[in-house]
Amino acid sequence: MEASAGRKRAYSIIVPTYNERLNVALIVYLIFKHLPNWKPSGTAYLHGLKYASGEFVVIMDGDLSHHPKYLPGFIRKQKETGADIVTGTRYVKNGGVHGWNLMRKLTSRGANVLAQTLLQPGASDLTGSFRLYKRDILEDLISSCVSKGYVFQMEMIVRATRKSYHIEEVPITFVDRVFGTSKLGGSEIVGYLKGLVYLLLTT
């Protein structure tokens, strides 16, 4: 996509979606707006990693809570640092969240303090899923992770830290568009705590 030291660097963007036809159209438009040189290779973003041909893979949510305008920042950060993983973080200066009530913020902070204290995970936003990976590193991590949902994102970054992969962070904002659906119920909290114990025992 972009020339670098005489060779092209290819980036694949994977956007998991759940029948969000309109959102896919919107996101593709916004990706083109912010990465004008991007050449979509078929339907890679729909079918996942085995169709992603790039040397780097970006994974982002398909409901526009992750804005494509941050993509150039991820790419720049990776180029500058040579990082294996660039992860978007909401919990730093210039990052942020919109659309969460006090209870949601409290759960989020509590979960984060617990994980930071017990696991020393090596990143400030463990459950965010807006990340850029070197392709081979993503494949390695996926093959060694077993969790689902929120815990999967945490397991990916904890295992990456334990394997001494180079992780860098960029601030992102997160606009929660499906207000209400990201409320955390009791079962999510229990699942999270189980995941925490699992990671304590296995990493």
């Binding site: 916004l30 804005h67 969240v97 919109h98 913020k105 409290l106 509590g110 204290t117 997160f174 606009v175």
Partner: peptide, 28 residues
């Protein structure tokens, strides 16, 4: 004490971005 302090501190300075919601609506 450490946990309560860290959670309270995090809540007090929780980064929010109301302007981003408006910008996103414009982009959409």
């Amino acid at each position: 004490c450490y946990g309560l302090f860290m959670v309270g501190f995090g809540l007090m300075f929780f980064p929010t971005c109301p302007q981003e919601a408006i910008l996103l609506q414009k982009d959409i």
